[in-house]
Design a protein around this nucleic acid. Sequence first.
DNA 1: AATGAATGAGGCTTCATTCAT
DNA 2: AATGAATGAAGCCTCATTCAT
Lengths: 207, 207, 207, 207
Amino acid sequence: MRSNDGRTFTETARRTQITQAAIDVIAEIGYAKASIRKIAERVGVAMSVVLYHFASKDELVQAIINHAYREAIDAIVPELELERTAAGKLRTYILANAFFLRTHRTQYAAVMDIGMSYRTADGDLVNSLSIDPELMAGFTKLDVATILRQGQESGEFCDFDVERTATAIRGAVINGPIMEVMLNPEFDLDGYAEELVALFDRATRRG
Amino acid sequence: MRSNDGRTFTETARRTQITQAAIDVIAEIGYAKASIRKIAERVGVAMSVVLYHFASKDELVQAIINHAYREAIDAIVPELELERTAAGKLRTYILANAFFLRTHRTQYAAVMDIGMSYRTADGDLVNSLSIDPELMAGFTKLDVATILRQGQESGEFCDFDVERTATAIRGAVINGPIMEVMLNPEFDLDGYAEELVALFDRATRRG
Amino acid sequence: MRSNDGRTFTETARRTQITQAAIDVIAEIGYAKASIRKIAERVGVAMSVVLYHFASKDELVQAIINHAYREAIDAIVPELELERTAAGKLRTYILANAFFLRTHRTQYAAVMDIGMSYRTADGDLVNSLSIDPELMAGFTKLDVATILRQGQESGEFCDFDVERTATAIRGAVINGPIMEVMLNPEFDLDGYAEELVALFDRATRRG
Amino acid sequence: MRSNDGRTFTETARRTQITQAAIDVIAEIGYAKASIRKIAERVGVAMSVVLYHFASKDELVQAIINHAYREAIDAIVPELELERTAAGKLRTYILANAFFLRTHRTQYAAVMDIGMSYRTADGDLVNSLSIDPELMAGFTKLDVATILRQGQESGEFCDFDVERTATAIRGAVINGPIMEVMLNPEFDLDGYAEELVALFDRATRRG
DNA sequence: AATGAATGAGGCTTCATTCAT
DNA sequence: AATGAATGAAGCCTCATTCAT
């Protein structure tokens, strides 16, 4: 019996299960120490089972990344599309990211860790890992630069460099709190998000 | 002939040399693949020389962190102390950090990588690594929260939560561009810094 | 419907198909790397199909050997039987072997590779693999020693030790060119065979 | 304390010891099953010791090949150089090879096995393994084609194709008996060699 | 102060084989 | 007749660390 991708139902289930376990393990002990053996132990199967379902550790990492991106897109993009104004979208972008980060802490941590640690055999960084192309479409909709551009075109936002400001927002909305949360799990993400909404409203609104 | 810490000059020189080599290697191939042997090769000595000077890899990592922090403090704190106003200090904080990041890219990359990857044998994160206590003093002076607090007390800055805003600024000034620079070495840090100065001026100034 | 050995036609066909695929794969990547999975992929079936038809890898190897020997016997023995004189048989032995080697290069390569590489779990060499007894009869007819003996009895050949000379001829006719052909696929087997015919004629003829 | 090649005496001794053990193990159980672990066990050290002295299994294989070739050259070439006539050299070539094969059975077997079994990661055969260039000189002197050419030029030998006849001689002198000896360790190599001397004398001499 | 040698633990991966369907 | 899933054993290799010199 086969589902899509030419994969059995069992196969799909196992892959998901392993991917989730991998995320948990990486979040807990870090990518560097998250061996295939430990991931298998978390699932409760032999190590070779993991390699039966994922041809290599690289392929598992890729699955994790795709899984995480897909969930983020599924959680955040619909929220964004409820908003009409750029200001509303920016506000939602910040709040939805914070909410997602709070509810998917381990996933975020795992992806960030992979992002810093993972290198191919050649030593290249992770963006060489091919992201599932169909994700790319949704991915673009997650891009805050698009929101900023819309806001400038509509006259809602004041004058600033879109790309650079987008980097700044990503830094404040994503990269900063990730670190914070890793070091201090008590960090109040929702309060932080509200502060950010106000901050970037002051920083972007016209007049 | 002995310098401080009961270390001879030679000893101190070798330690610095090894620390630098380690930083370069980590920045180049990532912490995960930066073995003691490769670091030793970069210096041009036998692997055991590294372990002669650093009792364990943990101790070397600690030295790297202290080295990096010390250089950052030495580079940025004096700049900050030239400024009187909180707005001036915030501006300088942003610009000096950007300049330091540009001139110490490998160091930054190495520290970030360690920050995400490094765990003690127990699985604890890197902040469990004891930071040289004498650094702590200077370290506090690097804290942007202090600047923000001063600005609110002096009435230069508008009303916002100091700690949260500090996290946001660190995210935009440090965490964000680090990622950006690692993935795209051409990223224009100076232009980015100028944009940030304007952005956070709009976001923090009273009125 | 059953053919001999209590095997259905389908069964026999699959076995032949798998045996052939195995030969090709072994010739291509070597016995050491020719895993059951790769052989199954060549056939286009699941790995377990191979083990459904051959109880173990040992059994598959045995089938390969028998298959190869049978083909060699079928190709060469009839040629030999057309000849009456020992000299004619020797000549034919050399030419037919060369022709067979040229047209069954992969098979030869596979069998040679197995001959050197294959050991049972106990470490024993391949001749411990039971050769299909019915092959033995034909096999004897392939033996050059028989030809030499006939030639000495008939007075065609001069005086030499039969067994030793047979080993020499096999070395020059089979073992040598196999190596040569593996390392240099352009090697002109037919020209070589003609040279051998002349050489062993000079070496064996009376007077 | 260092000997040539920038290697310690201990290092050189260990390398030799490991190379010898590897040859024995390969001859005994075949290259395919001769794992680094088993070789280490034969020496009586930990597996990682082997990899401390040889960066990879490839490097060990290369050392084995070079070792075997060097010994063959050292044993046979001086014998050849004592002879003046081509016929004498051919006779010596055959006898010296047989003697060497008898006294270095395991080495021969190991090299042959590697020759058939060894593939690089790309699947290429062993001649891609770089042979120590300084060996090449002596190696050429081992080539029977050179002897045949000399014999034709001097008029000792009759007319035949040099390259093809050389292949035939190698087949009868080396490849054939190797197989024979592997399958039947009692095979009388010296008797065989004498037969070969006579055989190839008949086959090559003028008139 | 430096270093060569050795080692055990662990990492990823391949493989033949078993079993339920 | 075929196959997907699972698995343990083994393979090569990297690494931090210890020790004698």
